[in-house]
Design a protein around this nucleic acid. Structure first.
Length: 750
DNA sequence: CCATCCACGTTTTTT
DNA sequence: ACGTGGATGG
């Protein structure tokens, strides 16, 4: 038998050996879908002699893409690297970097994240005199985002809005928002997809090029695609019709982000000749866990019927524990993990605590710190969303793309340059009336009326950026970053502050430096745009390191696609999960979406599953009293333990008895919390291989001939010992005199 | 132009 | 409870 079919069940084999035409694989949780996808790729290449560069596999997260890449590399001996394995977003970026000039954008466009979108929206509302009390930025942005997900452009939006006052306002905002983005040469996340669709629709030659290139297309997590993504895929596949999608309608949990569950439910209507294969054998969990999952999901309507089964045996029952407060809940989980790891039953990294909202993570962090349990928190504030990181990135963006007004304005007065709101407004007006970018207006600051002495402060900033830009000819991303840090004194300022918080920020900056170094190491052709793009497209889950022996804390959403031997689903309470919003909503579909989320959570567990809930917890500063989640009650009784003990547990731990001690210990705790937490966090950053360290000596001296990776040969003119690194001045034969930091320059003595 | 104080809303989930 | 953003005063 062909080795790509070895160890696969009948259905899996059938899916792997499907050659041409549309294919829908309905793959239940843990049914080995990634394996099927990767083996199919190998099979196409080996058995059907398909060229690797004609195959594309699309995923949603970088992590999934990375995993698939790795497996494909192992399976395919020759040409694995030319198989296109990427996320939707990075696929689109790659295409747009090449062809977006056809749509009137520059190919060095920047990508706006949520924060960027919000500040742009704030500007627009101000300019259009929109009262953000009535029309909130968030609401406007989400309306625009939904429109984009449905491929509705500003013009069409306006037409559809006729007669609706509120929507007409939104239409105006949408139009202006798109105009601004274009003027800033920027795209938001949704644009990445829909501009690519637009590009294909308006440029048959480009479309044809990619249709020829991607003759075999595979889409993972298909249930999460939105209308725009579906269109993108179907346009690409329309020529050769070799579209293979893998998904599970029961795991569709991204409706709020525009995911259209109809894409999977109606696949056979779009492609009447589609072959449909169901994978129902689960290789991950015990039968008890699957029974729990099946019991819950059975309460949803309109599903593609599937029943997971396994050959793994029943395993232990699913546990349910109810506590009087959320503190007790966290304490129990911490104690339980300590117990299990001490027994040697599970190691830390086998355990995951999953919850509905990010806010719930705090209590677990606290208890874990107290119990000395190493943990890794996924989600919350994204690393790249931190202020210090965004500041530095804004500098880099400004150097990369001078049309990105948002970035320029973010940093124009960071650090303080005495350029205030008034000056900024003047420049803004001037730029608007002369139809130029903010940055270009700054260059002519002298001519701006009423700018006064602000003008003299703007000039040095402009020349600073100009100098950086001219240095880019020979600078690496790392050089640039380091130069920015040095010249702005960003780190020096933080050092002077001498607070815990400042130290944390410096650590983050060091981590950014590491990322830049890692980027340069791993990329064959590192570019500034490339780095900024990579940074814009990473999610926190992508950084999950399997070898790291820590308990994982994350939301149910982030957990999709992962598996753990020992899983805790915390906060199983009506009002929290399913959330209050869904319960009161008149759309029953909302509770169904939560139920799918619960299904996802349950099916993450391999051996042991524990559900917990609290009767009382603080939510947004208010005490809430919740009932046990309806989802717990949907689990068949015979696989669940703990439900019956419910009432007795309540009695044993009356709230008042605990309250005094709890409060006291919490007070004590607050002092140490920050410190301990920092220490913990810091360790996450520590073991990376690209640590930038000051060398204790250099193996070259003044007068020596050295070689630089980019500039070639040169002679060392001067070496100055700085606080963080040696600053080396070299006279290069071709590139001239450069100053650089020894740790980054990697000079070699010749 | 900048620092400080207070009011408000925010959270359900994220590429 | 917490952070953000606006208003206010120096």
């Amino acid at each position: 038998m062909n080795h790509t079919l070895e160890g696969l069940n009948t259905e899996q084999q059938e899916a792997v050996c499907h050659f041409e035409g549309p294919l829908l694989i309905l793959a239940g949780a843990g049914s080995g879908k990634t394996r099927v996808l990767t083996n199919r790729i190998a099979w196409l290449i080996e058995e059907k002699q398909i060229k690797p560069w004609n195959i594309m596999a699309i995923t949603f997260t970088n992590k999934a893409a990375g995993e698939m890449r790795e497996r494909v590399n192992r399976l395919v001996d020759f040409g694995a690297e030319s198989i296109w394995v990427a996320t939707f977003h990075s696929t689109c970026v790659r295409i747009l970097r090449r062809f977006i000039d056809r749509l009137g954008y520059g190919t060095n466009f920047t990508i706006y994240d949520g924060d960027d979108q919000k500040s742009l929206m704030k500007d627009i509302c101000k300019r259009l005199n929109i009262d953000t009390k009535i029309y909130r930025e968030r609401a406007l942005l989400s309306a625009i985002s939904s429109a984009k997900d449905e491929l509705i452009g500003p013009e069409e939006y306006r037409i559809r809005a006729q007669g609706d006052f509120g929507k007409m306002k939104t239409a105006a905002v949408y139009e202006e928002y798109q105009r601004q983005l274009k003027q800033n040469n920027a795209l938001d996340f949704d644009d990445l997809i829909c501009k690519t669709v637009e590009l294909f629709q308006e440029n048959p030659d480009v479309l044809d090029y990619y249709q020829e290139k991607f003759r075999y297309i595979m889409v993972d997590e298909y249930q999460d695609t939105n209308t725009a993504q579906f269109r993108l895929v179907s346009i690409l596949a329309s020529k050769y019709r070799n579209l293979c999608v893998v998904g599970d309608d029961d795991q569709s949990i991204y409706k709020f982000r525009g995911a259209n569950i109809g894409n999977i439910l109606n696949f056979e209507q779009f492609f009447p000749d589609a072959k449909v294969i169901k994978l129902e054998q689960n290789y991950r969990s015990t039968q008890n866990i699957l029974d729990a999952a099946n019991g819950v999901i059975a309460n949803n309507s309109g599903r593609k019927e599937k029943t997971l089964w396994t050959a793994n045996g029943k395993g232990e029952p699913v546990r349910f524990r109810k506590f009087s407060t959320a503190y007790d809940e966290a304490e129990f989980i911490a104690a339980d993990i300590s117990k299990e790891t001490a027994k040697g039953e599970f190691s830390y990294k086998d355990c995951a605590v999953l919850y509905r909202t990010n806010a719930q993570s705090r209590l677990f962090e606290e208890k874990f710190l107290l119990s000395n349990i190493p943990y890794r928190l996924i989600g919350g504030v994204n690393f790249y969303a931190r202020k210090e990181i965004k500041d530095l990135l804004a500098y880099m963006k400004t150097v990369d793309n001078a049309r990105d007004d948002l970035a320029v304005r973010r940093i124009i007065n960071v650090p303080k340059r005495g350029i205030g709101a008034t000056t900024i407004a003047r420049i803004q007006d001037y730029a608007a009336s002369h139809d130029m970018s903010f940055y270009d207006a700054m260059k002519q600051a002298g001519e701006i009326p009423g700018i006064g002495r602000g003008g003299s402060r703007v000039a040095p900033f402009v020349s600073f950026i100009q100098t950086l830009r001219s240095k880019m000819e020979f600078y690496s991303v790392l050089d640039l970053l380091h130069d920015i840090i040095e010249q702005t004194g960003y780190v020096r300022e933080l050092e002077a502050e001498d607070t815990d918080e400042a130290r944390e920020r410096i650590e983050n900056i060091d981590e950014l430096i590491n990322k830049a170094a890692a980027y340069e190491e791993t990329q064959e052709q590192p570019t500034l745009s490339g780095f900024l793009e990579e940074v814009a497209l990473v999610a926190d889950v992508d950084n999950l390191d399997e070898d790291d022996n820590r308990v994982i804390l994350m939301t149910l959403h982030s957990a999709k696609g992962l598996e753990f031997p020992n899983v805790y689903l915390a906060g199983m309470e009506d009002g929290l999960f399913p959330s209050y919003m869904c319960i009161v909503s008149d759309d029953p579909g909302e509770v169904e979406e939560e139920r799918r989320l619960c299904y996802v959570g349950i099916t993450r567990a391999m051996k042991r599953l524990t559900l917990t809930g609290a009767q009382m917890r603080m939510i947004r500063g208010e005490q809430h009293f919740n009932k046990v989640s309806r989802f717990v009650k949907e689990i068949p009784e015979d696989v669940l333990t703990g439900m019956e003990k419910e009432s007795r547990q309540e009695e044993r731990k009356p709230y008042e008895e605990k309250a005094g001690n709890e409060r006291e210990s919490r007070l004590d705790f607050k002092k140490d919390y920050r410190k301990a937490r920092e220490a913990f966090r810091a360790r996450v950053f520590e073991p990376q291989q690209f640590q930038v360290k000051k060398a204790d000596h250099l193996d070259y001296g003044v007068g020596d001939q050295v070689e630089h990776i980019k500039f070639g040969r040169g002679r060392v003119l001067q070496i100055v010992e700085g606080g963080r690194d040696f600053e080396v001045t070299v006279d290069f034969e071709k590139a001239g005199v450069k100053k650089m930091f020894a740790a980054f320059a990697k000079l070699k003595k010749v």
